[in-house]
Write a protein that binds this DNA or RNA. Structure first.
Lengths: 69, 69
DNA sequence: CTCAAATGTAAAGCTTGCTTGACTTTAATT
DNA sequence: AATTAAAGTCAAGCAAGCTTTACATTTGAG
């Protein structure tokens, strides 16, 4: 699962710790999700969507298999 | 978290087992999510969104606190 | 009413998401 | 070069999502 967190966070000039506070999760959780170590829970994805005022699908994209041409 | 799974599934006349097959999860998982026992993982929410060709936000809604009037 | 399919429920166990605490690395500033 | 904030990483532990097996209840067709 790819995501645009780093980009969205940078636009707002928030640190990972800032974002963690707003989401009410730990800084390590934000870091792990940003780095793609794991996917957020659905409730956390909703919080991110609200915070960034964007649909979940615009923040997270399933990496789909490349068509083999 | 509320969801419209039962409704969407009924529209297509699929059983919980049918849906479980398409999602590649167990029937009990479909049942539990439909009944609101727990939220799906984000990847599973994406599978549902693709299957029902609907945004995640249109399938799942965070139940927000009622304004106290 | 009967029978079968569908739905609901429960327990035990594995995997994944998230926490805290601690430490290291990177990048920017002086 | 030294300092500091931010980012990255690791380990141990708890919580949530999902599995399998098994059984009970509900629904609907005949």
């Amino acid at each position: 699962m790819n995501n645009r967190l780093k980009e969205l966070r940078a636009q707002r000039r928030w640190t990972q710790a800032d974002l963690a506070d707003k989401l009410e999760v730990s800084r390590q959780t934000v870091n792990a999700i940003e780095k793609g170590k794991y996917d957020p829970s659905l409730p956390l994805a909703f919080k991110l969507a609200r915070l960034f005022d964007s649909p979940i699908e615009s923040i997270f994209q399933e990496e789909t298999l490349e068509p083999s041409r």
